[in-house]
Design a protein around this nucleic acid. Sequence first.
DNA 1: TCAAAAGTGTTGTCATTACACCCATGA
DNA 2: TCATGGGTGTAATGACAACACTTTTGA
Lengths: 240, 240
Amino acid sequence: MNREVIPNLSVDCALFSFDGNQIKILLRQEKILLNGKTYNKYKLPGDHPFMNEIIENTAERILFEQTGARDIFMKQFWVFSSLDRLKRNEVDFAWIKNRGLISERVITVGFYSFVKKGVMENQHLIPEATWVNIHDVQNLIFDHEEILQKAREQIKKDIEHQPLVFELLPAKFTLAQLHNIYELLLEKKLDRRNFRRKVLLAMPYVKELSEKQKGVAHKPAKFYAFDKKIYDKHIIHKTS
Amino acid sequence: MNREVIPNLSVDCALFSFDGNQIKILLRQEKILLNGKTYNKYKLPGDHPFMNEIIENTAERILFEQTGARDIFMKQFWVFSSLDRLKRNEVDFAWIKNRGLISERVITVGFYSFVKKGVMENQHLIPEATWVNIHDVQNLIFDHEEILQKAREQIKKDIEHQPLVFELLPAKFTLAQLHNIYELLLEKKLDRRNFRRKVLLAMPYVKELSEKQKGVAHKPAKFYAFDKKIYDKHIIHKTS
DNA sequence: TCAAAAGTGTTGTCATTACACCCATGA
DNA sequence: TCATGGGTGTAATGACAACACTTTTGA
């Protein structure tokens, strides 16, 4: 592969995961040297596309490099082209200069992506990468706060119409987990009973399994699974 | 302004208009010379961003250059980065070479935009630009067919939640025109009575005017107008 | 008086909301 | 036996779909 990169374009990935209770974001911890002082900043993983690489592959490559996992769900959602996005802050700009300035003008394509906790546990996260609870995110470099915010807004829209949340859940999950994820991503309360009914009636592709939770100090919940085949059939039916 | 451009990035604009009956797309007619023959192709207007220009301004500049109009509504909707997008066809690639090859690899950001017919009529369209009925679009260069298609899909989603169609209508319009636009953009029939009721009840920002149509050989329709102030108030109320 | 589009109401169905109690389990 | 979260049903309301006739105008 041709390793020459496109200097004025990059891809940044907001990678989301769900640990059973909370939404987590993958951030890279960056120690930045400036005038003899070290600053700690966090950064969404990103990179420049190679000259002969489509941006979806760039995103895939970034995610693989950070997590060791492939076939992670992802979607481009916005292009950020502000003129000063790398230079709003002296410390941030030092990050660029310290790694050898490619260009002062980089337009970036934001991707958001979802990874299952189980997939992550089988892989080796690189040392600089850390999962941060979405409510504890701070100290982001460049315009990465804005990128993350925009990702969250886009996700709110997208999950209403597409079965994306299953990318965050293990193959077997309980309705309480599903409920929890929707509440966290949409940032609003959903009535538990109405939610269950809606899933069971309006999402025939969420299939009940025979298995139940074990070892919990309350009535064990049934497990469910997302059935892609039923989903595809269902959707073709809906849009025709 | 620094006129150096970003070589590997471009902006392409799918500009929509409504002539009262049909949706039109602005295309540039391109005569391409290859091996002594001339080929006719159509192209969405596009250009490279300047090195110190945000892509939204690039889109604005493109629209102004083509139509002479400013303050046209627009929105970025997707990034197209396929490796062969400029080279799928020998004739298309000749277009690039004939104007001085900047780069064989150009990733493009698609914008869609809406312009009112009235605005256009006060301006001077450049000679190469022509309004083509959306159903008659053919012979597009590069991947512009795909870009246009994706724009139309995005528009279908966006107009369900945002008052974008008013950007296509004159300040005064009839409900029949509004109905017509929705049917054309959504590519489906909408019951006329239900549509009217929904507009009148669910869109309080579509205000009835006292004026009526004149000189039509049937019962004259009332004019309506989009009231942005009421819309803004209404929306703040809805999302809070 | 005709053609053409504007304008208007009702009814049935379905989706959404609000809301409270019993169940199964491990500690 | 208690604490914990799982699981269930009903009634009221609102949104949406289907559907046909009368009105106003210019020709």
